[in-house]
Design a protein around this nucleic acid. Structure first.
Lengths: 137, 137
DNA sequence: TTTAAATACTACCTGTAAGTATTATTTATT
DNA sequence: AATAAATAATACTTACAGGTAGTATTTAAA
């Protein structure tokens, strides 16, 4: 499984910012630290601002900062905001109307694994990701 | 999580064929039954023939048939043949070099779920999918 | 009030998965 | 030998995610 690059970028950006959650982060700095293409990151920041996780501060001395505690921002919410969770949580065979009552041949087995994925996404906060001592950001 | 349409198609085609594993199946018939675009399915059949799961029989009365028992063809092999398993089994954050020694912030949690996905793919045969009494093919 | 340093917006470019069209080739039947 | 019915190969088209370029707007500091 892979998330879209946009979702990956969003997680990386927000978990990086969450290492210093009170600070105002500029796009320039994020680009330098995260190795994400400049213009795409800037567009994404605007998009993330509109979702409400962060707010933008325009003008000189501007940048981006969180609107709420990073303990209250979960991976599932971020993926949902940028891609829509249903993109990842639908039928593994690609059927639009797959359900317990009208299942595909992998439905039962997949439903179990999918719920594990959902639990992971729903219980992992940006704060948790930020506090890990990992090289990769 | 979603597989590529090509992988979805491959699973649907092969599990449909596996309902009558001794029969020679024509592209025409598969298109009619599976609601997959004609030309794309035909190209995919050629590709699947080259992977060795099925063989093509050219000329009049031709079509496609299995080269081995459907109990010995697993979902993981099919996905690997058409997309490459690594497309789905890599780092959830998109890092190329994520590992236990050099992990991303989600590595540990994701590794557990990913192994469940792998087990599902590796232990589900086309024969098993075919014998399920499901509407969706 | 001017300037510098930041974000916002709009339009365009590019690569790839998926879909389509056309023609060539193969082989059983007649 | 001719035909019909199947697969094979090649090239073109389309949609969209991701990436790029240029200009406009905002605001603190000098």
């Amino acid at each position: 499984m892979k998330l879209s690059k946009t979702a990956d970028y969003s997680l990386r950006i927000l978990s990086f910012m969450a290492k210093k959650p009170e600070q105002i982060h500029t796009a320039k700095d994020l680009v330098a630290k995260l190795n994400i293409s400049d213009k795409y990151l800037r567009r994404l920041m605007t998009q993330l601002s509109k979702t409400g996780f962060i707010k933008s501060i325009q003008g000189r001395e501007g940048g981006y900062s969180f609107t709420k505690p990073t303990e209250q921002i979960f991976v599932s919410q971020i993926i949902d905001a940028v891609d829509g969770l249903e993109k990842y949580m639908g039928c593994i065979m690609g059927f639009g109307d797959c359900s317990d009552d009208n299942p595909c041949a992998l439905h039962k087995k997949w439903a179990k694994v999918r719920s594990q994925i959902m639990i992971l996404f729903e219980t992992t906060s940006i704060a948790e990701m930020a506090e890990k001592d990992v090289q990769k950001v």
